[in-house]
Design a protein around this nucleic acid. Structure first.
Length: 740
RNA sequence: GCCAGCGUAGCUCAGUUGGCAGAGCUGCUGAUUUGUAAUCAGCCGGUCGUGGGUUCGAGUCCCUCCGCUGGCUCCA
């Protein structure tokens, strides 16, 4: 197609298999132009041999050998293109900020799931009032349609350039983060030059819709002790309609906020006087939880789990054995001491460990302990800090210290140990809805999603190494079953494996590779969508975490299945094998819900408060036409209750229209209107929250209908249609079972 | 824990340059006796998150603490 030149042309293979030729200076854009001007206009970037690059990168820079270069032209229709657009929009935003503010130091500006951000260090505080002028400046930049021009420099030149530009964070990054690079790339857009890996869109005019979303704090390279930066969030799209839809989705998420709906519908309450992060389950919320617990308990019992119970506190020594106490000390509530001097010795011991206790302070501690009647004769004669700590620790051991339990597993390990175990008893599956307490940082607390007192649907499976595969498969099947039962069918799994280069892991090499192979093969067989993350495993074993996507597209990390080689070792768990020799079991932690608090909060948002019948705290409300029919209404309610349904009677005055409106707004699944006709014939007029009036029918018929819906755990997915419109619409009124 | 914003009745919110604390819903009382998304009237309800300061005077301006929200860091 193009004229031959002295250097040999490169072969470019298009997705349809066709091969075109380009000189080494040719670009993806040139290929596009050869195909059509229209295509060239819509090209955003290119995928070359699997990596995404600028559309104007010469092929010569990227040719790796004699194979044809695989080229895919990306337009706004390709999902990858949006990321490129947003990254460029981040540059545009940074450029606008530099035009508007003095002394801006640029950090990083990556894309995120919903848009992008850019971190800045600048003397002035950016506030929301600045957003309109930042957006206006961005629009001016976009209107100029200036290109993004890439150039590469040697590291030292690059460092010098950043220094000349007064970009000290970039200088630091070149010196540290990019220390192993010989060349680094920059992008220039008009007066704005930024150290950047790219790729970028051909010119700023491709950005059709932008919005600056929010401002927040962040830290340089994520180090909480590092330099404090201001993070400006924004988003960008190829189309104004897409931006509007995105903003609408955010509004929708706000309307579904479980904290708002939880209060509005009387599900739960979190009150600072009760305690930060400690939730009160109000009767209606508790009914939802009971339904979830009953459902799961029944499943577990039928799947070979044994119920157990354990107390809310346990001796600190047990958590020293498990390793939780020393390792997670800062996110636990302080220990409860059997003796009033316990707190003093604890603080004393910590100071010794931190090395923050001078001899004067040490003397004061000794004196203070004496006041409490505690003499520690061996303390002074102990030479080393370790010996002194041991003296304190020995005293603490005989004087009880308890921890509000942060984990159930140590208790369950002791249940395993409570009797001699034979291989014939394995796998042993112990489950408990165990409430644990963790002193989460104040800034982390979030409604029911992050609390300080939470109930895990916890279980620990003790099994032989050979049983790992089966015992890993079963909880995964259970988890997916449980989620489908509540109407969640969009999920994926993250398999977290060890980092082969690290030595922080416990357990033998053989166990790990055997376990990782087993987990991978289970996930492979299950057909689940999963990805592997090397280095993300816990130090004690590999794990599979479940991410669920709710009906408005948000991801939640909920259930988990984790292998553990550590606790059986620490608690010296053993079973007698068929060879009559003691063996160490493998332990599996698993929780399909994660925590009842978080799971319920997520469900509230997923259903926008409108629970399916089987989970609903108020399944039927009987509405007497007037006071005259309250008696009959109560009778109907009793009949429905006798069938196991959750029923209330609205005995307030007023018209039935008002009662219906209230019941609809309170998301009661079914209404039963009763008046003279029904009272005479032993009927009720059933009204469905979703489909409206279903007509009169005998009470028994209505009960049977609802019982069927409950037992099938039907999820008739509900979606709010428009802003402020409380109407709920069935996506598919013929939906049965768990499908929607 | 760090940064920013916010805190007025049970809930949602108004409250002007500093000048007598308001509305709707909820709740209570009464009237109404109702057929598939709002019957009417009256009443109750607040040390304006806490403590201090500036001022003749503070919901409003300043400081402290507490709490909430968003983000950062963390998440066994």
């Amino acid at each position: 197609m193009t004229a031959a030149s002295s250097t040999p042309n490169l072969q470019i293979q298009l997705p349809d298999g066709n091969i075109v030729e380009q000189p080494p200076s040719g670009t993806s854009m040139d290929v596009a132009k050869d195909i059509s001007e229209g295509l060239a206009r819509s090209v955003i970037a290119a995928e070359i041999d699997g990596s995404i690059v600028d559309a104007d990168r010469p092929f010569g820079e990227m040719s790796t050998g004699d194979k044809p270069i695989a080229l895919r032209l990306l337009t706004s229709r390709d999902p990858e293109a949006l990321g490129v657009l947003r990254h460029s929009a981040a540059h545009v935003m940074a450029r606008a900020v530099m035009r508007l503010f003095e002394g801006v130091s640029l950090a990083f500006g990556p894309t995120t799931e919903g848009g992008f951000y850019y971190d800045f260090d600048l003397p002035e505080k950016i506030s929301e009032e600045d957003f309109p002028k930042i957006e206006a400046e961005m629009r001016r930049i976009i209107k100029d349609k200036e290109p993004f021009e890439r150039f590469a420099l040697e590291r030292e030149e690059a460092r010098q350039l950043c220094e000349d530009l007064n970009q000290d964070l970039k200088v630091e990054h070149i010196e540290t983060g990019l220390a192993d690079q010989t060349h680094v790339s920059f992008y220039r857009q008009g007066e704005f030059v930024d150290l950047c890996r790219g790729p970028h869109i051909p010119n700023a005019g491709k950005i059709k819709a932008i919005k600056v979303m929010s401002i927040a704090g962040s830290h340089w390279k994520g180090d909480a002790s590092g330099r404090y930066l201001q993070r400006l969030y924004g988003t960008a799209f190829f189309d104004k309609k897409e931006l509007a839809a995105y903003l609408e989705q955010i509004e929708e998420a706000k309307r579904r906020d479980h904290r708002v709906l939880g209060r509005q519908h009387g599900l739960f309450s979190i009150n600072p006087e009760v305690g930060q992060g400690l939730c009160l389950w109000l009767p209606k919320g508790a009914k939802v939880r009971v339904a979830l617990e009953d459902f799961l308990r029944k499943e577990l019992l039928s799947r070979g789990y044994d119920p157990v119970y354990s107390p809310h506190i346990g001796r600190v020594e047990m958590y020293e054995t498990s390793g939780h106490f020393p390792y997670y000390r800062d996110s636990q509530f302080s220990p409860l001491f059997g003796s009033e001097v316990g707190g003093l010795l604890d603080a004393w011991s910590r100071r010794l460990e931190e090395g923050t206790l001078d001899s004067e302070g040490e003397e004061k501690m000794i004196e203070a302990a004496k006041v409490f009647g505690v003499a520690l004769p061996k303390y002074r004669s102990s030479a080393t800090v370790e010996d002194r700590q041991r003296v304190l620790h020995d005293w603490q051991k005989v004087n009880e210290r308890y921890l509000l339990k942060p984990m159930n597993c140590p208790h369950h390990c002791h249940i395993f140990k409570a009797q001699p175990r034979s291989y014939r008893q394995l796998p042993l599956r112990l489950f408990e809805f165990g409430t644990v307490y963790r002193h989460e940082q104040t800034g982390e607390l979030n409604g029911m999603l992050r609390v300080r007192g939470l109930t895990q649907d916890d279980a620990h499976i003790f099994c032989t190494a050979g049983q790992v595969e089966d015992e890993f498969r079963a909880p995964i099947e259970l988890t997916t079953f449980v989620w489908q039962s509540v109407g969640l069918d969009d999920y994926r799994v993250q398999l977290s494996l060890r980092d082969p280069k690290s030595d922080k892991y416990v357990g033998t090499e053989e166990n790990w590779s055997q376990a990782e192979t087993a987990l991978r093969s289970v996930l492979e067989q299950s057909g689940l969508d999963y990805n592997e993350e090397e280095g993300e495993a816990a130090f004690y074993g590999p794990k599979a975490d479940f991410m669920v996507r709710d009906c408005i597209g948000r991801s939640w990390q909920l259930g988990t299945v984790q292998l553990d080689y550590n606790l059986p070792e620490r608690f010296k768990l053993e079973y007698n094998g068929s060879d009559n020799v003691a063996h160490r079991p493998v332990m599996i932690h698993r929780a399909p819900f994660g925590s009842l608090e978080r799971f319920t909060g997520m469900l509230v948002e997923h259903f926008a408060g409108a629970f399916p019948l089987w989970l609903s705290p108020e399944q039927v409300r009987v509405l007497p036409l007037s006071d005259k029919y309250i008696e009959y209404a109560v009778q109907v309610a009793q009949q429905l209750e006798a069938e196991g349904l959750k029923v209330t009677v609205d005995s307030s005055g007023g018209k039935v229209q008002a009662k219906i409106r209230n019941a609809q707004l309170e998301l009661v699944n079914y209404m039963a209107v009763v008046g003279p006709k029904e009272a005479e014939s032993g009927q009720l007029a059933l009204r469905d929250r979703i489909d409206g009036d279903l007509g009169s029918m005998p009470v028994a018929e209505a009960a049977a209908r609802l019982k069927k819906e409950v037992s099938e755990r039907q999820v008739r997915q509900v979606v709010r249609t428009k802003a402020g419109n409380a109407a709920v619409a069935a996506v598919d009124s013929d939906a049965v079972g768990n499908e929607y």
